[in-house]
């Protein structure tokens, strides 16, 4: 079912939402960087920029998350589990970020093991995405099977801006329907011309993304290329900062550590990790299967465009292009994977 919401009502909607839930939307931080932040009022919403510097990933998959508290004293050991997560709304992320969540959902439910920290939080999260009118030069979402500036994968609601200033609002899940029915006064029913306009929007927006990569061909190139001399040189500019994995909507690798406060209290923590870090695979005793940058660099690209495809039938990438912008030495994922030989 499709609806319409006017530009003015979007702000009213935001204020209505944040009266009952936490709402995370693009907003400027103290340094004027646009990030997903908790809105205090609709005026803080900065809807103009295409991509936030980092993704909204950390709102569901926390950068650092306490699994539980541990109390160890003369009565034994007690494990106190974390509080239940709050309901939140992620407002105004882009289709590539929403699809990133869809990819993470599968990983955290993979192999019959449900990661309940992520899953519970995701159950309480409503994702409202906005179609992209002006893709940037770093965008390459259309290279992916589902990717598009109007793709709804992972979104509960997708808003598409129309020429008259209002938005076409489509719902894809019960959560999405709930969001609209709870605020039904702000929405009108969309007419056929509006959904038709979205088709035009799609054609126009997709045409702006000039770079299209044949990912099936890339996978084929990668299969036999593990030992290829290509990796000997392509990694050389990399300074191992890990910025690429940090800004990625799909990078999920994590570490589990324990932090002791004293002899009695400690906490088990999960935190984002990066395959670009040397310690990532180093075993107790010092043996490390991925000792140098070449191996770690190869792992990052092979994982995203080869191994993950074997396991999940889709790439571990959505084409948002953030890693291209974040890399201090301008390593471009598109060039790296297309150049594999």
């Amino acid at each position: 079912m499709a609806y319409l919401i006017s530009k003015e009502n979007i702000k009213v909607l935001l204020d209505a939402l944040l009266a009952v839930k936490e709402v995370y939307a693009p907003k400027k931080d103290a340094e004027e960087t646009v990030l997903f932040g908790k809105l205090a009022g609709s005026s803080e919403w900065h809807g103009d920029s295409l991509l936030t510097h980092t993704t909204a990933k950390d709102k569901v998959y926390l950068q650092s998350e306490r699994f539980f508290n541990i109390k160890k004293d003369k009565d034994g050991v007690r494990i106190e589990e974390a509080e239940e997560p709050e309901e939140i709304v992620i407002f105004g992320c882009r289709p590539c970020d929403a699809r990133g969540f869809d990819i993470l959902n599968k990983l955290f439910n993979w192999n019959n093991y449900v990661d309940e920290y992520y899953t519970k939080r995701m159950e309480k999260t409503t994702i409202v995405s906005i179609s992209c009118l002006k893709p940037e030069s770093t965008c390459f979402c259309t290279s992916f099977a589902k990717g598009s500036p109007v793709d709804a994968t992972g979104s509960d609601v997708l808003l598409t801006p129309l020429k008259n200033g209002s938005y076409l609002a489509e719902t894809f899940t019960e959560k999405g329907k709930g969001l609209i029915s709870n605020n039904s006064k702000l929405f009108a029913e969309a007419a056929e011309v509006d959904t038709k306009e979205k088709e035009l929007f799609k054609t126009e927006a997709e045409a702006k993304i000039v770079k299209k990569i044949d990912l099936a061909a890339v996978k084929k190139l990668m299969e036999p290329a593990f030992e290829s001399a290509y990796w000997d040189t392509v990694h050389l500019p990399c300074v191992k900062c890990g910025a690429c994995t940090f800004v990625c909507p799909t990078c999920y690798c994590f570490d589990i550590t324990e932090k002791a406060f004293d002899n009695i209290n400690s906490e088990r923590v999960r935190s984002w990790d990066t395959c670009m870090n040397e310690l990532f695979t180093r075993m107790a005793g010092g043996v490390n299967p991925r000792t140098d940058t070449k191996k770690r660099f190869r792992q990052r690209f092979m994982h995203k465009f080869n191994y993950h495809v074997d396991n999940f039938k889709e790439e571990l990438c959505t084409g948002c292009g953030r890693c291209i912008k974040a890399c201090p030495v301008s390593i471009d994922v598109r060039k790296v994977i297309e150049g594999v030989k």
Binding site: Y113, F254, D273, C275, N306, Y307, N311
Partner: peptide, 19 residues
């Protein structure tokens, strides 16, 4: 085989050889 492991569940992403 022995590898550095954290989760044991195929999720933390560090113990792979290929896929």
């Amino acid at each position: 085989l022995e590898m550095r492991m954290k989760c044991g569940l195929g999720k933390c992403g560090r113990c792979n050889v290929k896929h």
